[in-house]
Amino acid sequence: MSLDLLKQGWQSLGESKVVDDAALARILQRKSKRPIAKIKRNLFWELMAVLVLYVSFTAYYFLSDDGLYWTVSILLFALGAIFGFYYYKKSKLLHKMECVACEVKSNLENQVKLLEQYVRLYFILGNVLTPVAYISAGLIAFYKTPNHEAHTSEVYPILFGSAVLLTIGVYFLNKWYVRKLYGQHVDALKTLLKEME
C-alpha cells in the first residue's frame, strides 16, 4: 500500500482541532517540562542547598569559640567559591545545550556533546571537592586543637583513612546519581543520532 494514499487526508489532519488565543496565551505563562529545563531547575535547587550549607557553616566557624576556627570558615568560603564557579560552568553549558530552532541532527549532536561534558564536570569535580573539603577542614580543626602534636600519630591515619573511605563512597554515589539523572537521557539521544546515520 502506498504512503501517498495518506497525503490527501494528511493535509486536513490537525485542522479540526483549534486552540484559541486565550488558551495559547495561558500556555505561554507555563514552565517548560523538557529534560534540560528540569536539569536547570535541579541545578538551581542544588546551588541553593550548597549556598545555605556553606553560608551556615562559614558563619558558625567564624563566630564559634571566640573565632578559634576562623581559618576553617575562610577555607569553607574558598570551597564555596569553587562550588560557585562549578555551578556557573554547569549553567553556561546548559544554556548552550538548547537549540530547538537548529536542524534536528545538529541539535542532537550538540546536546550529546555538551551533556557528556556536563556529566564529566559534575562527576570529576564532585569526586575531587568532597575529599579536599573534608581533609582541609579536618587538618585545620586538628591544628587548632590544644596539644595536637601529641595526637598526630593517631589522628593522621584516622583522617586520611576516613578520607579514602569517603572518596570511595562518594565515587560510587556520584556514579549512581549521575547515571540516574543523565545516563538514560544521553543513551536515548545517542540512539536517535544512530537512527539518523
Binding site: R34, V104, L189
Partner: peptide
C-alpha cells in the same frame, strides 16, 4: 517544524 520536531524527538 524544527522547533516542533526537536521538542517532540528529544523531549521525554
Amino acid at each position: 517544524y524544527r522547533i516542533a520536531l526537536n521538542t517532540a524527538i528529544s523531549g521525554v
